[in-house]
Amino acid sequence: MTYLSRITANHQVMLGKPVIKGTRITVELILRKLSEGATPADLVTMYPHLEEVDILAAIMYKPS
């Protein structure tokens, strides 16, 4: 799996911020929640559209 298969950036969605494909959940939000102490399981519970692979993709994401 590469993070590019899970993350997209489109200027019409969240002003072009990188998001998990098919959602409006930003990479920034995921990383902020993790830095605040949330676990991947917490995030999946808070955001049912997320999968653990989406969280891993957010961690691996590197802007071009």
Rank of each mutant, 00 (worst) to 15 (best):
M1K: 13
M1F: 09
T2R: 12
Y3H: 00
Y3D: 06
Y3G: 01
L4D: 07
L4Q: 12
S5T: 10
R6P: 03
I7A: 06
T8G: 05
T8C: 06
T8E: 03
A9E: 00
A9I: 02
A9Y: 04
A9V: 03
A9G: 05
A9Q: 02
A9S: 00
N10F: 00
N10V: 05
H11S: 06
H11R: 09
H11G: 03
V13C: 07
V13K: 10
M14C: 09
L15G: 00
L15R: 13
G16T: 06
G16M: 08
G16I: 05
K17M: 04
K17D: 04
P18C: 04
P18G: 04
P18D: 07
V19P: 01
V19Q: 01
V19S: 00
I20C: 02
K21M: 03
K21G: 02
K21F: 08
G22I: 05
G22Q: 08
T23D: 10
T23E: 02
T23A: 07
R24G: 06
R24Q: 14
R24W: 02
R24V: 10
I25M: 11
I25P: 00
T26D: 05
V27Y: 00
V27M: 09
L29N: 01
I30W: 00
L31Y: 05
L31P: 03
L31S: 06
K33G: 06
K33H: 13
L34I: 12
L34Q: 03
S35K: 15
S35T: 12
E36A: 13
G37K: 08
A38L: 10
T39Q: 13
T39F: 10
P40K: 15
P40M: 15
P40H: 15
P40W: 15
P40C: 15
A41Q: 14
A41S: 12
D42V: 04
D42H: 13
L43A: 12
L43D: 07
V44D: 14
V44T: 15
V44A: 15
T45K: 15
T45L: 14
T45S: 14
T45W: 14
M46Q: 13
M46T: 06
Y47T: 10
Y47V: 09
Y47N: 11
P48Y: 12
H49S: 14
H49L: 11
H49A: 15
H49W: 13
L50Q: 09
L50F: 07
L50C: 11
L50Y: 03
E51T: 12
E52P: 02
E52L: 03
V53E: 12
V53F: 01
D54C: 11
D54S: 11
I55G: 01
I55E: 06
L56H: 12
L56F: 13
A57N: 01
A58W: 01
A58I: 08
A58S: 11
I59W: 08
I59L: 13
I59T: 13
M60N: 02
M60F: 05
M60D: 11
M60I: 05
M60C: 08
Y61C: 05
Y61W: 10
Y61P: 04
Y61K: 03
Y61N: 07
K62W: 01
K62Q: 04
K62V: 09
K62R: 11
P63A: 07
P63S: 08
P63W: 03
P63T: 04
S64M: 12
S64P: 11
S64N: 07
S64Q: 13
S64H: 09
S64Y: 12
